[in-house]
Each structure stands twice: as C-alpha cells, then as structure tokens.
C-alpha cells in the first residue's frame, strides 16, 4: 500500500523526481492544500475508504506510512 501511495504521490500529485519512502516528509516535498485534496480523492477511490474532514491532520498526512495507517484504520 505504501509503495502504491508513493507512486500516486510521485506521478499524479506532486510530480516529484526523487524517491518517496515510507517515512518521507510529504510536506517538505510540496504537499500543499490542493495536493491534500487530490490525495484524499485518490485514496478514497483507490482504497475504497472515506476520509472525513476531521481526519485531515498534519499527523495523518505527514508520511506515506502515516497515510497507510489512516487507510487501514478506515478499512478495519
């Protein structure tokens, strides 16, 4: 899931050249308010979960690992 997330972020959302690892700080590589919305939509569509506005915190979106945790908690 983390690898798929990293690919979505690199190719579809951030247009980023470098490697995106599980612990990459996404805010440092350009995750802004618009990118958050694109990511929310991509996550909802790819992983069949619903992200509530209350889930949109810096803690939940800091790294691919944190986003994976959020998705898994929604799928549980």
């Amino acid at each position: 899931m983390e690898t798929e997330l990293a690919q979505i972020l690199r190719e579809e959302i951030l247009d980023h050249d470098g490697n995106i690892g599980a612990d990459t700080d996404l805010f440092e590589i350009g995750l802004d308010s618009m990118a958050i919305m694109q990511l929310q939509l991509a996550v909802e569509e790819r992983f069949s979960v619903t992200i509530d506005p209350a889930d949109l915190s810096r803690e939940n979106f800091q790294t691919p690992e944190a986003i994976t945790r959020l998705i898994k908690s929604k799928q549980a």
Binding site: S33, I36, P53, L56, R58
Partner: peptide
C-alpha cells in the same frame, strides 16, 4: 475551526 490542512477552502 476547519482543520489545519484545509487552507484553500
């Protein structure tokens, strides 16, 4: 009020 990541809206 709205969440720390909802700057644009």
């Amino acid at each position: 009020t709205a969440g720390e990541l909802l700057m644009l809206p």
